[in-house]
Write a protein that binds this DNA or RNA. Structure first.
Length: 688
RNA sequence: GGCGGGGUAGCUCAGUCGGUUAGAGCGUCGGAAUCAUAAUCCGUAGGUCGGGGGUUCGAAUCCCUCCCCCGCUACCA
């Protein structure tokens, strides 16, 4: 489907500057975006490709506190590292920006002020608990106290679990900060809200229309639907924090703009910064404003709500009141997640592999190809290193690399490295030329419909067909009998090499460049080259450079080595890191551990994890609720000797009082194992 | 427990929203070939489409139910 748009604006999700990029990120958003962009550039489209680091938000502050750094120091570590990893991976951003720069603060404040001036933002005054020690307002889950209705002493800020009544956190009697245990004070705070709900009907129409025009992905439509179904609500756009963009409205000087609001605007900032560096300050408007632009936002599935709902609503909000009209995303192709060796990437568990580490071991193109053919386009997919090895060896090296090599080596030996003339065309020649003539549009159509994985596979199919052509034509035989025939075969094979270099440029740009060099072509692969891949493009008599190995194979031991650095082995054993700070003996003595014998056990109805146990401790039988139902059968538990914390403050879980807690080892993956004792000592025996 | 998503060949995944003998790549096995990175090409085998019901002339596809996995969440004191 030919696009009527003159310009293409592409963004890839702004990575959060609170950690290193890993392979899951690349498969989710960045590689798809880069494939799409590189393809369109070769088609001759006018493309602007933007990205940048998302550097605000409370998580960065928390990381800083944990490591004794300022937020600025945190982002100054991850922003350059991620930018560099992107560069090595071959991301072809026109500009990579960051949200901590003054220009971005200005962009954000401009939107904010605009909304505020036009009374789009609603002010809501509320009383909230403020912890003077932690110097912050407490979210509901960070505060507990006595329920004013039933007197239960561990009610949360929003609801009492004992009597089930809904509470306002300031109603709590004797509230306590869950972080530090001190008593917070009531302070009045005012926040501004963005009326997302007002936009719901327009957003639904917007998604429907764009889907009709550009074919949105099913998973994305499903996520949108569930948000619409739940109903959109006002969202707070201000927060009582220090780290972020200061609110530009009087009375709110001590607050910052909520990170969800400023992050998506980072795309616009990136456009402005790009334009400024081009020395054409207004050039960004050609892409961001006006009807001639098609805007495509590549993201991972966790970001759907911000790009399909929040960001469009913000742009609608702006467009309603201004002459300058921002372009809304025409499509938001979100991928699902990539697993690593069968398990979810997890920073906290140390599972997975960072992009920069991977690129220390292998060329980016190997990774790009392997990821491209297993992109999680319609559901989560798995990345296995042994698959990676197989893809590179059996496909990239053996099919593509070997075809290029055999063709160039043959030319070198039999024709002195000069493109032989094409003589009489026979059936085999006609067949492959026919295949060649449709290959660019076949691959291109798949790319344009966001079926990147199929597109790359289709490109590899041309290499397969090329090998078949070479085999069937048997130039090594005709070289002895019919040099004209042999020359014609090699002439066509060389044309195929050239076309393959072009069709593979979006996936493996470095490999394509190497082929180009071997073909001794002066003008680099560039805008408009895509369609020329359908036809022969090498002149007879042209002299080639000597061939070199294009893709070298991956050895087993290279895979083993990276498996170790990936933390695979580490993660299979229980973590020993993350030990808490040293405590004194007095502290430890406060804990009264006792042997307890299970006398009764049953599942708590409607609960999936909780077991209600009656245990004997000393002379007493008490009830304990434990979250072990997924691994232990109630009947099996009866008679077991456990170790329990006997002097723990009681709590009520799903209406069941729990007086004490049993000890169990908790693995990060959710597996657990109860603690018991080796010999049969009487219940109530102290453990220390 | 609730909401959402999955369960298709040994592995990784498609399957155009009911229509002929369920597909691809890799792996397996056999063959051809020997120009090439022992690479290539051809062919073969392999699936009761998680289980069970139902609707239909016809179901991987629609409905019901059950089992298992993943995510979010409730409750892992």
């Amino acid at each position: 489907m030919a696009s009527p748009h003159k310009r293409l604006l592409v963004t890839a999700a702004l990575p959060y500057a609170n950690g290193y990029l890993h392979l899951g990120h690349m498969a989710g958003a960045y590689l798809p975006a880069d494939l799409y962009v590189r393809y369109h550039r070769l088609k001759g489209k006018d493309v602007l490709f933007l990205c940048g680091s998302d550097e605000h938000g409370v998580a960065i502050t928390v990381t800083g506190e944990q490591e004794g750094l300022t937020p600025q120091q945190v982002i100054d570590r991850y922003h350059p590292a991620n930018e560099e990893a992107f560069r090595k991976f071959g991301m072809s951003f026109d500009h990579y920006s960051r949200t901590s720069i003054p220009l971005h603060h200005e962009t954000t404040r401009e939107f904010f002020r605009n909304f505020s001036d036009r009374s789009l933002l609603k002010e809501k005054r509320e009383k909230q608990l403020f912890c003077e020690k932690d110097n912050m307002f407490l979210a509901d889950r960070y505060v507990e106290g006595t329920c004013p209705k039933c007197g239960y002493d561990q009610a949360r800020g929003d609801q009492c679990e004992n009597c089930g009544s809904w509470l306002n956190q300031v109603e709590l009697i004797k509230p306590k900060c869950k972080l530090c245990g001190t008593t917070p004070v009531v302070r009045e705070t005012t926040h501004l809200y963005f009326p997302l709900g007002q936009f719901q009907r327009r957003l639904e129409k917007y998604v429907k229309e764009r889907n009709k025009r550009d074919g949105w992905k099913e998973n994305v439509l499903r996520y949108c639907e569930s948000w619409f179904k739940a109903g959109l609500e006002d969202r707070a756009v201000t927060r009582d924090l220090k780290w972020g963009v200061p609110v530009p409205v009087s009375g709110f000087e001590n607050k910052v703009i909520y990170v969800w609001f400023d992050a998506v605007l980072g795309y616009i900032t990136a456009g402005k910064e790009w334009a400024a560096r081009q020395g054409k300050k207004e050039a960004w408007k050609d892409y961001w404003q006006g009807t001639e632009t098609k805007y495509v936002a590549f993201i991972g599935k966790d970001n759907v709500v911000f790009h399909c709902i929040v960001f469009p609503a913000m742009l609608m909000g702006w467009n309603d009141g201004e002459e300058e009209q921002y372009v809304l995303p025409e499509n938001v192709p979100a991928n699902e997640f990539l697993n690593f060796e069968g398990q979810k990437f997890s920073k906290s568990r140390g599972w997975g592999i960072d992009l920069r580490d991977f690129l220390d071991h292998f060329p980016a193109d190997y990774l790009r190809y392997a990821l491209a053919v297993t992109l999680p386009e319609s559901r989560d997919s798995d990345f296995y290193l042994k698959d990676f090895q197989a893809r590179v060896n059996n496909e990239l090296a053996d099919i593509l690399g070997n075809f290029v090599n055999r063709t160039l080596a043959f030319t070198q030996r039999s024709f002195g490295g000069v493109v032989p003339p094409r003589r009489k065309i026979e059936a085999l020649d006609r067949e492959i030329l026919e295949i060649l003539s449709t290959a660019p549009s076949n691959v291109g159509n798949l790319f344009e419909n966001y079926r990147l994985r199929d597109g790359v596979t289709e490109a590899m199919n041309l290499a397969r067909a090329a090998n078949k052509y070479f085999n069937d034509s048997e130039p090594w035989k005709t070289a002895k009998s019919d040099m004209d025939r042999c020359g014609t075969t090699i002439h066509i094979a060389l044309q195929l090499v050239r076309s393959l270099a072009i069709l593979f440029e979006p996936v493996t740009p470095q490999i394509s460049r190497t082929i180009w060099k071997m073909l001794n072509l002066k003008e680099p692969i560039g805008p408009g080259f895509w369609d020329t891949a359908a036809k022969p493009g090498l002149d007879e008599g042209h002299t080639l450079n000597p061939p070199e190995i294009l893709v070298s194979k991956i050895e087993d031991k290279q895979i083993d080595k990276i498996l170790q650095s990936a933390g695979v082995e580490r993660s299979l054993t229980p973590a020993t890191t993350g030990i808490k700070p040293t405590i004194s003996l007095e502290d430890f003595k406060k804990i009264d551990l006792r042997v307890a014998k299970v006398v009764e056990a049953e599942k708590i109805p409607k609960s999936s994890k909780l077991l209600r146990l009656k245990v004997e401790v000393g002379g007493e039988v008490r009830q304990i609720v434990a979250g072990i139902a997924q691994q232990y059968e109630p009947s099996w538990m009866v008679g077991k000797l456990l170790v329990v914390v006997a002097n723990l403050q009681p709590v009520t879980l799903m209406g069941n009082e729990s007086r004490g807690m049993l000890l169990a080892a908790n693995a990060d993956d959710g597996k657990l194992s109860i603690v018991t004792i080796l010999d049969d000592l009487p219940p109530g025996t102290a453990v220390r």
